[in-house]
Design a protein around this nucleic acid. Sequence first.
DNA 1: ATATGAAGGTGTAGTTTTTACACTATTATC
DNA 2: GATAATAGTGTAAAAACTACACCTTCATAT
Lengths: 214, 214
Amino acid sequence: MSGAAHLTLTTDVVPFAIHGERLEVLLARQAADWRLPGGPIAAGEELDAAARRYLAAQTGLNDVYLEQLYTFAQPKRHAGQRMVTVAYFALVSTDFPSDDGAPADRQAHWIAVNELPAQAPDGAEIVALAHRRLASKLAYSTIALQLMTEHFTLSELQAVHETILGETLDKRNFRKRILALDCIEQTGALERRRGHRPARLFRAKRPGQVDFIK
Amino acid sequence: MSGAAHLTLTTDVVPFAIHGERLEVLLARQAADWRLPGGPIAAGEELDAAARRYLAAQTGLNDVYLEQLYTFAQPKRHAGQRMVTVAYFALVSTDFPSDDGAPADRQAHWIAVNELPAQAPDGAEIVALAHRRLASKLAYSTIALQLMTEHFTLSELQAVHETILGETLDKRNFRKRILALDCIEQTGALERRRGHRPARLFRAKRPGQVDFIK
DNA sequence: ATATGAAGGTGTAGTTTTTACACTATTATC
DNA sequence: GATAATAGTGTAAAAACTACACCTTCATAT
């Protein structure tokens, strides 16, 4: 029974977003360096409530998709100071402000998953596990929609899949597969960008809900 | 930071085995009632080490397959007494002694998942989640082999799948699928039971290892 | 006005995977 | 030697997946 007194239970969140063909993680400034958002869980606080609280406080993110990932006992840093962290990942839609042209003094910034700084205990391991989990969930759930803006084109959705998986997909097969899931619908509107045919816009049929498929 | 002092981090383990076409969970006696094996995690102890320790101490089980399931913040029971439990599930081979004809004073006993007693906080929820996780893993891993004895017949393996899934499977299709995975091999021996043709015995090619398939 | 560049959008044939389905083989017992 | 019980096996139809190429629509430049 005696272990409890020396123990700090914390949460760490891996906030993912896709920015320009890159899978990025939002890190928060803590003292001198950049770390995953998170911190100690308060007495009586729900675990996911703590994760949301730190995400909001340290990065300004609200109303994101959040999913528990794994719980890690971190190696002791100081004698008798035991840290256990309940890791989560969050999916942030692409239109949450990215870093392009941001002032240097901001408290949070996006960084590509393959360019993470040497980091806090378990940081890289947590991100890697979250990335794997996300990639495998693409195959059997509609989780990718949580990374999209309210309206999006099929090409954008395909790019999100490709970025997470790290491989290119066939356009026709991808569309067939996604449309067969009956998880998105046309808005009727078109997205017009310069220099080519406008793309049809889609939206999630059940936004905020992740369905399992197969 | 103040939450830590009131917090007890515990582990709970859902030990599964199949006994005679039933999926059963091994409960440990604690005071007056039967609960999932588990208890507080000691300072400096690895999480899965704690799970193994309680499993061994409270039920006598050793060397089982163990996998982290989910972490739950339990509702407070007394003011200021916060419990957080890291839940695991364990897979126990069918030949670990079942309860048939056991003395009434034993410290652990198997009970079918659908006959669990009204239980400790989260007990039923943890078992239900573990069952769902196990069932879904049958589809994309060789995890079912962890429930088998060293040698087993294909019919036994099929019965294990059927029990976990709660549905019957086609014998020919099941065998084709399992053999295509290249995860088991014939021992050459036969299991002879009374009154019918003897069955070929198989063993896992990589015992103790769970492979992902597809 | 017309040509060009850039992404959007579409169908089909071949292959592989999955499903449904029924009978013979081998043993112990009566 | 008949019976009861489980072991063991193949094939055809359906469904899912894969590979693959061309026309459309817009903006821009000439």
